[in-house]
């Protein structure tokens, strides 16, 4: 008789719902990492997620936790409201770069400056995915999008914003790192960072954010494999991976 050995399953942090993400998009990977971490920490029951506006607007369908859905860019403010009245809950936002770095820049900066004890998962795929691939604050110079058809011209359309570097200058931030989802090794490192970010919150050590370099094959007009290469060859030089802020208290955490 054939003996079956289950080696890969849905994490408990997930509901049994197929995602709406395009083939090859790394949102699914990021979702899974968050779900695995919530399961491993045993906090699914007391977690409240805050979904953004953008491709991950329906994130609330996929996590088996309570969820609220924020207006575009306002997730950190909404998370502040939740966390301040429910300090013993785990509260996280999941935001894209249009949501966090464009319309929601005010909310993210001030939540970080206040040291809100929340965790932010920030997906940087260098464009507005849901509305069809328009230029985002994170779009690379020269990168073609549906609203920078000749390539982002920095003379008229400005320069990309490096969110993690910027947030790491704020005293309220406890943990601020950038990781990438373009290969298995980096996915493992990303998961470790996500775990650390949630541990920071569980210990009340301040604002934690993990920026994840991600793909958008559909709007980039690339195959999934070429998208992963694009992250490695073009996004990583512009958005170097690294730990931009890890407070001394957090350095003591062993996971």
């Amino acid at each position: 008789m054939l003996k079956e050995n289950l080696v890969y399953d849905r994490p408990e942090g997930f509901t049994d719902t197929p995602t709406h993400y395009c083939p090859g998009c790394t949102h699914g990977v990021a979702h899974r990492l968050v779900a695995e971490v919530l399961e491993e920490m045993g906090v699914i029951d007391r977690t409240i997620g805050v979904a953004p506006v953008g491709c991950s607007v329906f994130a609330y369908n996929y996590f088996d936790t309570d969820f609220v859905e924020a207006p575009h860019g306002r997730a950190p403010a909404m998370a502040t409201g939740v966390k301040r009245v429910m300090p013993d809950r785990i509260v996280f936002t999941y935001q894209g770069d249009g949501d966090l770095a464009s319309i929601g820049m005010g909310e993210i900066v001030h939540a970080a400056a206040r040291g809100e004890n929340i965790t932010v998962i920030f997906i940087n795929n260098a464009n507005f995915g849901m509305t069809g691939g328009q230029m985002a604050p994170t779009t690379l110079p020269g990168m073609k999008t549906s609203s920078s058809v000749n390539g982002r011209d920095v003379e008229t359309q400005g320069y990309p914003i490096r969110v993690s570097e910027m947030l790491s200058t704020l005293d309220g931030v406890g943990y601020c790192v950038r990781r990438s989802l373009h290969d298995p090794k980096n996915i493992r490192l990303a998961k470790k960072a996500i775990r650390m970010a949630f541990e920071v919150q569980a210990r009340g050590l301040g604002f934690s954010v993990v920026e994840l370099l991600s793909t958008c094959p559909t709007n980039w007009g690339m195959t999934p494999v070429n998208s992963l290469k694009f992250v490695e060859e073009h996004m990583m030089p512009a958005y170097p991976l690294g730990d931009f802020k890890v407070s001394d208290a957090i350095k003591q955490i062993k996971i």
Partner: peptide, 19 residues
């Protein structure tokens, strides 16, 4: 919380109201 703006304030209200 003294919010960063009225936008921030109303969305904090929104979050807390959901609880």
């Amino acid at each position: 919380v003294q919010a960063e703006s009225e936008l921030g304030a109303i969305n904090m209200v929104y979050g807390a109201a959901c609880t």
